[in-house]
Amino acid sequence: MTTTSAKCTGSKIAIVTGGSRGIGRDTVLRLAARGVNSIFTYNANQAEADKVRALAIEAGAKAIALQLSVERVATFDAFVMRVREALDSWGVKRFDYLVNNAGTSSGASFEAGTEAELDAQFAVHFKAPFLLTQKLLPLISDGGRIVNISSGLARFTFPGRAIYGPMKAAVEALTRYMALELGPRRITVNVVAPGAVATDFSGGMVRDNPQVHKAVADHTALGRVGLPTDVGPVIAALLSDEFGWVNAQRIEVAGGIQI
């Protein structure tokens, strides 16, 4: 863990899972540009996490990178302790925003899907945001914000996404229940559903495969694939005070794909 000792009293603090790459990375940097400090997680690539941290600091925010493999629920208690230590190092006890972004891809069809892949996708995409948010609830400020990440594939279908898409649909249902039950604490919970985004997700399929890239662009009203820089600003905006009356909503950020 890399940290600083300066206090950040008065500044908002976000936790972003999967913040070292793709949409999570852009979210951390968009928040930094708004003066929001971040504790973000990475799975394995500490070098990339260090780059994101440096960019956030360059933008004028504070940032701490913590390793977390979200499928390993047994490590969540230790992670929460590290979050407490990070907050203490900044002279505060609570954080304000949580973005459940970390995820992995699945290219399984219904016919070929296995129990092992079902279990793996469930662990990352549903079990992790459910249980990690539970563990972090005592540290989230009343009046805070939570954004979960879904996918356009929860609304439309694409070959080879028979496990991934339904798991994201479950996240959308979970979001509504979280919003209802956390309402007494004035914590809003919304879900952002990106369309196909050109990142290294799913082996860089959308970014690097010309056929997939063209097919996505051809089926998108705005005529191109999405970029992390299309999605990060929306997540950052949803966490702001201006969106405080938006709650339990699904916001698809996809340029009008499959409409």
Rank of each mutant, 00 (worst) to 15 (best):
A63D: 04
N148H: 07
D241T: 11
S20V: 04
A65L: 13
V171L: 08
R185K: 14
F243T: 03
F158L: 12
D142E: 14
F95W: 08
H213W: 11
A86M: 08
D96Q: 04
A49C: 07
V28D: 05
L137N: 00
I57G: 06
L239H: 05
G113I: 07
V246Q: 12
T229E: 15
V70T: 11
K214F: 08
V52G: 07
T17H: 14
F122I: 01
G203K: 03
A108H: 14
Q211Y: 10
I259V: 09
V73D: 02
D218P: 10
F40Y: 11
R186M: 07
I39K: 02
S106W: 11
K93N: 15
A32S: 11
N148F: 03
L153P: 02
I149D: 00
P138R: 05
E71L: 00
G256Y: 14
N100E: 10
G18K: 11
A236T: 01
D50V: 12
E48R: 13
L139W: 09
G226S: 01
T2A: 06
L238Q: 05
K214R: 15
W245M: 12
D26Y: 02
I259M: 15
L238V: 07
G226T: 04
A102E: 12
P194M: 10
A193L: 13
P138D: 04
K168T: 07
A33M: 00
V216Q: 01
E117M: 02
L180M: 12
R185Q: 06
A237M: 08
I251A: 06
L222V: 15
F95C: 06
V192W: 06
G113L: 10
P166A: 02
P129Q: 04
V216I: 08
L98N: 05
A154N: 03
H219W: 02
A112E: 15
A123C: 06
H219N: 15
L153G: 05
T175E: 09
V197E: 00
D88A: 14
P159V: 04
T133P: 09
M205Q: 10
F156D: 01
L227C: 07
G18W: 03
N43M: 06
P228W: 07
V171Q: 12
T17R: 13
T17D: 10
G24M: 09
T188P: 01
